[in-house]
Amino acid sequence: MSGLPTAVPHRLTGRRVDVPGPLDLGGQGRRTAEAVRFLRECAGLGLRVSWRAQGRPSYDLRALRHLPPPTELPGCHEDLASWRSGHGYGTLYHRRGPGFVTVMDRREPGAAARLTLDHPDLLAAFDRLLDPTPLAALDPTGREAAGLLAAERLALVSGGWAVALPPRIRRWPVPCTAI
């Protein structure tokens, strides 16, 4: 068992994951949310992923810069080049504490942000969005929290679905002083 979500067919060999079919990044619903969750979990485990993208994203791809870049991103050559050059392990991650989550965000060059999610509603929404979730399944407070997380680029909300973006790092190359 790889510990990776099963919604995306894949083959794990050592520290490498191969995804045989393209992953939908178009942002039109559950398939995109599942693809993002799969890539987030791979990133958290420090796995190398070989995958292709399909669909023209309806959102800012820079939000995904912390995830392993695809080998192909049809019709988005500049976005792919930017993704590859800006990608790095540990540029976005979260750590858990008792009653809070700390997020470190270094996706933008020259800028770093450390956020602490400790409000119970925000923390509950973050935890819920670790699994792809339809917005319609959230109560009004949950939808508001999902919107706040999306505004901070900590969740992708698109096509009526939402998913949290920061992986929980399980391999730790980040200096402990950077937490």
Rank of each mutant, 00 (worst) to 15 (best):
L138G: 01
A112P: 01
L25H: 05
G26D: 13
D24L: 07
V17Y: 09
W83I: 01
P57Y: 10
R11A: 07
P98L: 08
L4M: 11
L122R: 03
G3T: 12
T141M: 09
L80T: 01
E108Q: 13
H10I: 04
G55S: 10
A33Y: 11
T133I: 08
Y93R: 04
T32L: 10
A151R: 15
A125Q: 13
R107S: 12
T141F: 04
G14D: 13
S158N: 10
S158P: 07
A178T: 00
T102G: 01
S158D: 14
H66W: 05
R15C: 01
P5T: 04
S58V: 03
F126Y: 13
C42H: 03
V8I: 14
L47Y: 14
A137M: 02
R11H: 11
F38R: 07
L138M: 06
T133E: 15
P22S: 11
T116G: 00
H77L: 05
R107T: 15
S2G: 00
D105C: 06
P20F: 11
R48L: 04
S158L: 05
G46D: 09
P120Q: 13
P9D: 11
L45Q: 13
L12S: 00
R128V: 02
G3F: 11
G46P: 05
T6N: 11
D121M: 02
R65C: 06
G159H: 02
A178N: 06
L122E: 11
T6I: 07
R84N: 06
H119K: 12
R96I: 06
R153E: 15
R48H: 07
M104D: 04
S2T: 08
S58W: 01
R56E: 11
R128T: 13
T102C: 01
R37M: 14
